[in-house]
Simulated assay, not measured.
Amino acid sequence: MSYPPDPNNPYSQPPQPGYGYPQQAPPAAGYGYPQAAPMQAPMYGYPPAVPQSMPGMVVTSRVLLFIIGAVQIIGAGIILTGAAVTKTVTDRARDSYESDPFGGFGGAATGVLVVVGIVALLFAVFSITLGVKFGQGGPAVRITTLVYGSLGALWGLVMFLGSFANKVNPAPGFVFAVMWLAVSILMIVGMSTRDGVAWFARPRY
């Protein structure tokens, strides 16, 4: 039979948990004991910072879209003016000779020029509208601009190769093709950079 230890006996051992004495719970945190910091899950990456203003390459792409739209408007005006002149010359020649001296070529050329001029005007409106959307547009605007720049680069490459077919003076076509290629590549780069992606993916309220 076991007896409880005498508290007045200095040689007696302190009571052990489980031998007739209840085990005491550890002191709660906050009563003189520091509380352990909660464990945090390790972070293996940080989300890209949301740009507060439009990044430089995005601004460049936007300005280039406006410039392209202006050039397309000027080109459309020149083409439609040429269509009007062609129609006037054809009508006067028909009135003078009481028949079409061009064999119908004048009317066909006028129709082609009108269609090309209208298409150029539509592209001008599209370019300017796309540039305006850069302020509040989302990922769809970025992807559309990326595709637009890629098609422009392809067209610039075609013009670049076609400039060598002009044996008389290939310089104007060559310079224009190089400039068009450079503009298209700048637009592609502006839409592909990390800042550009973050700008169009930012939350809009």
Rank of each mutant, 00 (worst) to 15 (best):
D6I: 06
P7V: 04
P15E: 01
Q16P: 02
Q23I: 09
Q23F: 12
P26A: 15
P26K: 15
P27E: 11
A28K: 15
A28D: 15
G30N: 05
Y33T: 00
P34C: 13
P34W: 15
A36M: 14
P38R: 14
Q40P: 09
A41R: 11
M43N: 11
G45S: 13
P48Q: 09
P51D: 00
P51I: 02
S53I: 04
M54F: 04
P55N: 04
M57C: 07
M57N: 02
V59D: 09
T60L: 10
S61Y: 03
V63D: 07
V63Y: 02
L64W: 01
G69R: 02
V71W: 10
V71F: 13
G75A: 00
T81F: 06
T81S: 11
A84K: 01
V85E: 05
T86F: 05
D91R: 01
D95Y: 01
F102K: 02
G104A: 00
G107C: 00
G107A: 05
G111L: 09
L113C: 14
L113D: 15
V115N: 08
V116D: 13
L121K: 05
F123G: 12
S127F: 03
K133T: 13
F134K: 12
Q136D: 08
G137W: 12
R142Q: 10
I143S: 04
I143A: 07
A153L: 06
A153N: 02
L154M: 07
G156T: 01
S163T: 00
S163F: 00
K167D: 05
G173I: 08
V175M: 10
V178G: 08
V178S: 02
S184C: 06
S184A: 10
I185H: 05
I185W: 00
M187V: 11
G190C: 09
T193K: 12
F200T: 13
R202D: 11
